[in-house]
Simulated assay, not measured.
Amino acid sequence: MPDLGEPGLYLTKVSTLANARDTVQDFTFGDADLRTLELAGTQLTTGRIHSVHAQRVEFETMNLHGIEITGSDLGAARWSESKLTRVTIRDTKLLGATFDSLVLDNVLFENCRLDYATFTNVRATGSVVFVGCILTEAAFADCDLSNVVFSDCTLRLTEFGPGRYRGADLRGNDLTSLRGLPHLAKVRIDVGQQHDLAQALVSELNIAVGDD
């Protein structure tokens, strides 16, 4: 994860993430209430984004390395064709966000609101962890989330569509309302979660259980 407190590192406060060179480095940006936040072809290296509230967010062909995003509300952000390396996103709302064609390499989502978010063609090439996140009715499709960890997350009606999830760690979560169970071959669960998956399957297939 990004170490923004290392000795000798000085982060310069900037008023915008857009510049003519399309590169922002060693920066801190925050305490901003924006109508729109649009970035394309931009590289952000070693920096902190905090307390940003934006009504409309568009990120395209971005390259983030050593970035920390905290305490922000990015709403239904549209994030596409980008790579995130050593990135932490913490205490941030991304309700209804769209993540399309992202590469995640050592990325942590912690205590984030990701309700109704859609993840399409997202690929984990390094460690990716979701901790304490709310993913109510979020959807994953055509993703490679092999070995991704979900810990203490709300997975209510979360749908896992076609994709690769081998080795994904679902231990420590309530799985009773998951959707797309046939696509979750070779994931990891606790012994006690076998009943959760059985209940989820009965619900998803609309199976009637009774003595009649």
Rank of each mutant, 00 (worst) to 15 (best):
P2A: 14
D3T: 05
L4N: 08
E6Y: 05
P7W: 01
Y10H: 13
Y10V: 13
K13C: 01
A18N: 07
N19F: 05
R21W: 02
T23L: 11
V24R: 03
V24A: 06
Q25P: 04
D26I: 02
D26E: 07
F27S: 06
G30I: 05
G30E: 06
A32G: 04
D33T: 12
L34F: 11
R35T: 14
L37P: 08
L37S: 02
L37H: 07
E38P: 05
G41V: 03
T42A: 06
L44H: 02
L44I: 05
L44F: 07
T46H: 15
I49N: 09
V52F: 01
E58C: 10
E58V: 10
E60N: 14
M62K: 02
L64F: 15
L64T: 05
H65T: 11
G66V: 03
G66Y: 06
I67D: 08
S72A: 08
L74S: 03
A77N: 07
E81R: 13
S82L: 07
K83V: 10
V87T: 11
T88Q: 13
K93A: 14
K93Q: 13
K93N: 12
G96C: 10
G96Q: 05
F99I: 06
F99M: 15
D100E: 14
V103N: 09
L104M: 09
D105E: 08
V107E: 01
L108P: 01
C112M: 00
C112T: 05
R113M: 07
R113H: 10
L114T: 00
L114G: 03
D115W: 12
Y116A: 08
T118D: 02
T120S: 14
N121I: 00
R123T: 15
G126E: 02
V131G: 08
G132L: 04
I134V: 13
D144S: 08
L145R: 03
L145P: 03
S146F: 08
N147M: 07
V148P: 09
F150R: 06
F150V: 06
F150M: 11
D152Q: 14
T154C: 09
R156G: 08
R156Q: 13
L157E: 12
L157K: 10
T158R: 00
G161L: 06
A168R: 03
G172D: 02
T176D: 02
S177K: 08
S177I: 00
R179V: 02
P182Q: 06
L184S: 08
K186F: 09
R188Q: 15
V191M: 09
G192A: 05
Q194H: 12
Q194E: 14
A200M: 08
S203K: 15
N206K: 15
N206Q: 15
I207E: 05
A208L: 12
V209E: 14
D211M: 06
D211F: 04
D212M: 09
D212K: 13
